[in-house]
Design a protein around this nucleic acid. Structure first.
Lengths: 198, 198
DNA sequence: TGTTATGTACACCGATCTGTGTGCTTACGG
DNA sequence: CCGTAAGCACACAGATCGGTGTACATAACA
C-alpha cells in the first residue's frame, strides 16, 4: 500500500491509463479490446484486471484524466481578461479527434454507465466554469452565457467529427457575437485587438 | 425486378429497414446484432443478407431514410416566413435520442464508411438548406448564417445526449440572436409574434 | 405441371470480445 | 536466505458478433 515496493513495470496502472488515452481516442472505446490495450501497455491481462474490476471501471477512470490539460488549461490563464478567456476556450482544437466525453456517451449508450455519468458531470462543470468567467466579465446573464458557450463547444466538437473539418472557428465567431451582446460595452476591457494582427 | 411477384412477407426489405430505424436509434448500431434485428423484423437472416450485402450497407441505407421527415418537414412549410422557418428548425426535438448521423459517425468511427460519408453529405445539405433559407430571408451573409445555425443544431443534439436534458431551447435562443444580427430590420417581415401566445 | 424466385429454419463457421484460472518468474523486505 | 507479493505468459471459458451453407416451403407464372 505504501510507496514502498512495486518496481516491476514501474506502475502498471499508469501505463494502462496512458495507453487508454491514446487508444480509446484513436480507435474508440468499443473497438479497442482489452487484449490490444494490455499488449500496448506491456502489461499482462491478468495484471490489468487486478487494477481495474473491469473495462467499465477502466473507461470511467480514463475519462477522469482530462480536466487538468483541457479545463484548467484555459481557465487558469491569468494573463487574459475574463472576456479573452471565454474566447480562448475555442482555440483548443489542435489535435482533437472528438471530445471524449461525447464519444463515450454515444459509444457506451447507457446513461447509467459510470463513464456516462462522469461525462455529464464534466460537461456541467465546464458550463459552470464558463458561467463563472462570464460573471467575472460582468455579463448580463452569466449562467445563460455559460450554457450557450458550452453548447457552442459541443457543437463544434460534434460537427468537426462528422464533417471531418474544423468547426471551431465558426463556433468562435458565434461566441464573439454572444459575448459582445451579453457584456455591456462599459465593461472593464473594451480595448479592441482588431488591428493587432500577429 | 419488376413490381410483379413477391408476396411472402410483403416486403421483407421494408420491414428490415423499419426495425432498423427503431433498434439502431434505441440501442445504437454496434449494440444491435443482425440476429436480433432479423428476429424483430420477422425475417430470416438468410433473406436479410440477400437484400443487403452486409451490415455496413444496411446501416448506410438506414441513414438515408430520414430526410423526408426531418429536413423537408421544416423547410417546406410555406406557411412560415423564411425567418420563422430558420427558427422552426429548433422546434423538432420531440423524441430525439440523438441525431442519428452524429451517432453513426461516432459509432462506426471510420470516416470512409459509407454511412459516415452519407452523414457528412447530409450535414452539408442541411447547412446548404439553411443557407438558402437565410438568403431568402435577406441575411447579410447567408452561407455563414447557415453554417452557424447548423452548428447550433448539432451542438443541441450532442449536448442533449450527454446531459440527458433538452438543449434545443438554448440553441434556439442563440439562433434568435444570430438571425436578428444577420437580417436587417428592414427585411420583409418585422412583425413580431411576442404576445401572440398560443 | 414444372420452373423459378423468394423466403424460412437452423445449424454452423471463424473471429473477437470480456473476463479467469493456473503456474512460473522476478524482485524486494525481513 | 527465504517469504511474499506483484507481475507474466498463456490457455481457456462463455458469449456474441457478422456472415454462410443447406435443405425445404411457398407462390407466381409458363
Amino acid at each position: 500500500m505504501g510507496p514502498k515496493g512495486r518496481r516491476r513495470g514501474r506502475g502498471a496502472r499508469e501505463r494502462i491509463l496512458s495507453v487508454s488515452q491514446q487508444l480509446f481516442r484513436e480507435q474508440g472505446i468499443n473497438r479497442t479490446g482489452m487484449d490490444q490495450l494490455c499488449a500496448a501497455a506491456q502489461v499482462s491481462k491478468r495484471t490489468a484486471y487486478q487494477h481495474f474490476t473491469g473495462k467499465d471501471e477502466l473507461v470511467a477512470e480514463y475519462l477522469r484524466r482530462f480536466d487538468p490539460s483541457v479545463l484548467s488549461g484555459v481557465f487558469d490563464r491569468t494573463d487574459l481578461t475574463p472576456r479573452e478567456r471565454l474566447l480562448a476556450a475555442f482555440d483548443i482544437p489542435p489535435t482533437t479527434p472528438l471530445c471524449p466525453y461525447i464519444a463515450a456517451a454515444v459509444e457506451l449508450h447507457d446513461p447509467q454507465h459510470p463513464a456516462s455519468q462522469y461525462a455529464r458531470d464534466y460537461k456541467k462543470a465546464v458550463a459552470a466554469r464558463l458561467a463563472d468567467t462570464a460573471r467575472e466579465a460582468a455579463a448580463a446573464d452569466p449562467e445563460q452565457l455559460g450554457e450557450q458557450l458550452a453548447l457552442l463547444i459541443d457543437g463544434a466538437a460534434a460537427r468537426t467529427r462528422v464533417l471531418n473539418a474544423d468547426a471551431f472557428p465558426t463556433a468562435a465567431a458565434i461566441a464573439a457575437v454572444l459575448i459582445d451582446n451579453a457584456i455591456p460595452a462599459t465593461a472593464s476591457d473594451d480595448r479592441r485587438r482588431e488591428d493587432v494582427s500577429s
